[in-house]
Design a protein around this nucleic acid. Structure first.
Length: 553
RNA sequence: GCGCCAGUAGCUCAGAUGGAUAGAGCAACGGACUUCUAAUCCGUAGGCCGAGGGUUCGAAUCCUUCCUGGCGCGCCA
């Protein structure tokens, strides 16, 4: 709809040049069309006349008048007005909007999808929590956002892969192994001295007990071997928990990528060798450094420590280099905001290798402040005092939880009060949208019961839809594709949430004011047609957010 | 000290890449269920967009200097 109008304006512009009414001959880079806040200003407005004023050396209103004259008689437009400092306001003919309904009905589940991404290969890596304990609420936010970002990108025509990076190498895994081993010995009656930096939480005892059950005794093994076995066992079990929790949250990954496998395949050495070859590294005090300061980082960074072991950064560098080797055009990382200091060094690494730094986009998920009855919880894996994602899903429900996380832009902090979230379970915003969907389904059930058939798209008389609310609904339906594209290109899934809130508000208002099933059969058919288009849009947008669209509530 | 994010109604937040009179939800107040589900709707009230300066036809939005809150600044992960 918007594109058709844009095309018409462009043609009119060329006419003006041809006839000499306008002289600069410069076609503007882009014809901006926006939906005015005030409905009196029409369906679309453009500031074209104002942006052209300089090149034309004419007053904006003069330019606008020339354009409007050239557009007169266009069947798309019912009314064109010049307003304010030089805006051109367009009111489209109702017929245009009825066409949207046919598009929705015809496309069905696919309505809202577009090809803006043109098949660009893009990877979204998210959650990637260490496999040393269950997911907590902060991971939940990252999970909801990452999955929704992936979904809007898919809907916008990108070729998306969802990946979880498993940090199954390094010290934290050793610590896990040691923690389990010590608890295991404790279970066997030994008195142990549990280190401060071990994992204190209760699930470690659970893992120890499970180990004894499944694998038996460890006595007689060398300490290192025992720790290693416990670690491997623990990582495997914890990953099972994580996968199960994510499944309960409606999230699945295309790929689980093991950090350890990077080492097993000698990928870290290989990728570091490439960096050395390019002269991006240097040795100092027995360590190998990456010269990230050449590309905007504050300090150079250590890759291989003086004791010969590699840093977390080393495997991260190798991992990201390998992502591009795998053919992704663009790579998105979803991180907790506390890792933001890592961005410059990662981008520096890419620049050094000749990638534009924009090929890596890091989404920072701000902290979730967990409260219970307004009292903040301090979270920390080691202290063991934390609320798991699973607990929250069980208490609040997956739909409400995901919706809650997606309602805010991810770079602002989020207060999550468990008691409040539970209380809200009866008037949580998610139900507002879901209820609207359920209401359409209810209308359909009533129609079926009354023997009213679903409308045949070929025969519906949309001119029966003359109410302001009906046209407004059709206009809102027309905006779904651009809402999704906007969310995708900006990595801002919350835009889809706000789109849904608006559509739901319009629908509820319409529902309260007018009946769908009325005496006039033609009007009933047209309204059924309309509300079922609304239903399709609710379902499609909710699906993107990973929230269910119930038929009954 | 340096860097990143935020600061908009009493509270929680939008504000669609610089547009017209800054918007929702919750809370408050007043109304609407013999009618397709009241988890809904209609109405009232609520603002120095943290502060100052700048850029231009036009700024919550861009630049700059401050203020406040959060988070970072390891040969930790």
């Amino acid at each position: 709809m918007k594109d058709q109008l844009r095309q018409a304006i462009s043609t009119a512009l060329q006419q003006c040049y041809a006839s000499g009414v306008l002289s600069s001959g410069e076609l503007p880079a882009e014809i901006q069309l926006e939906v005015p806040k005030n409905p009196d200003h029409g369906d679309f407005a453009t500031n074209l006349a104002m942006t052209m004023a300089k090149a034309e050396r004419k007053a904006p209103r003069q330019i606008a008048e020339a354009l409007v004259a050239a557009l007169q008689g266009n069947p798309l437009c019912e009314k064109i007005e010049i307003a304010g400092p030089g805006f051109i306001n367009f009111r489209l003919a109702p017929n245009c909007w009825y066409g949207v309904l046919d598009q929705v009905m015809q496309a069905g589940d696919a309505y809202g999808r577009s090809q803006v991404g043109a098949g660009t290969k893009i990877q979204v890596e998210f959650v990637s929590a260490n496999p040393t304990g269950p997911l907590h609420i902060g991971h939940g936010r990252g999970a909801a956002v990452g999955d929704a970002v992936a979904a809007v990108l898919e809907a916008a025509g990108f070729d998306v892969q969802r990946e979880y990076y498993v940090n199954d190498a390094g010290n934290q895994v050793k610590t896990l192994g040691l923690s389990i081993l010590l608890r295991l010995r404790e279970l066997q009656g030994e008195t142990i001295d549990f280190p401060e930096d071990g994992y204190q939480a209760e699930y470690i005892r659970e893992l120890a007990a499970k180990y004894l059950d499944a694998e038996g005794d460890l006595r007689g093994l060398a300490e290192e071997e025992a720790i290693e076995r416990c670690a491997r066992f623990g990582v495997a079990r914890v990953l099972e928990w994580i996968a199960a929790d994510l499944k309960a949250f409606g999230i699945g990954f295309d790929n689980w990528y093991s950090e350890k496998s990077l080492y097993d395949r000698a990928m870290v050495d290989m990728e570091l060798a490439k960096l050395k070859e390019k002269g991006l590294t240097f040795e100092q005090e027995g360590a190998l450094w990456l010269r990230t300061t050449d590309y905007g980082d504050d300090k150079d960074r250590v890759l291989i420590k003086s004791d010969g072991s590699s840093t977390y950064f080393a495997s991260d560098v190798a991992y990201h280099m390998e992502k591009f080797d795998r053919g992704f055009d663009r790579v998105i990382d979803v991180w907790g905001a506390d890792h933001h200091g890592y961005i410059p060094r990662m981008k520096a690494m890419l620049s050094g290798l000749g990638h534009p730094p924009e090929d890596l986009e890091v989404l920072l998920i701000q902290m979730v402040n967990l409260l219970r009855d307004g009292v903040p919880f301090t979270m920390g894996k080691r202290s063991g005092n934390f609320i798991t994602l699973r607990e929250v899903i069980d208490e609040v429900g997956s739909d409400a939880c995901r919706y809650f996380f997606l309602m805010r832009r991810c770079d602002s902090q989020l207060d999550f009060d468990l008691e409040l979230a539970k209380q809200q379970s009866s008037d949580n915003p998610v139900y507002y949208v879901q209820y609207a969907h359920a209401r359409v389904c209810s209308i359909n059930r009533n129609a079926a019961e009354a023997g009213v058939a679903q409308p045949d798209p070929a025969q519906v008389d949309c001119s029966k839809l003359q109410l302001d609310e009906e046209l407004a609904l059709a206009k809102q339906l027309a905006r779904l594709p651009e809402a999704i594209v906007g969310a995708a290109l900006n990595y801002e899934p919350h835009r889809v949430v706000f789109y849904l809130q608006e559509l739901a508000a319009q629908f509820h208002s319409y529902y309260n004011r007018h009946r769908v099933l009325v005496d006039d059969p033609a009007a009933t058919q047209a309204r059924l047609y309309l509300v079922n288009c609304v239903r399709i849009v609710f379902a499609n947008a909710l699906r993107i957010l990973g929230v269910s669209a119930p038929e009954k509530m």
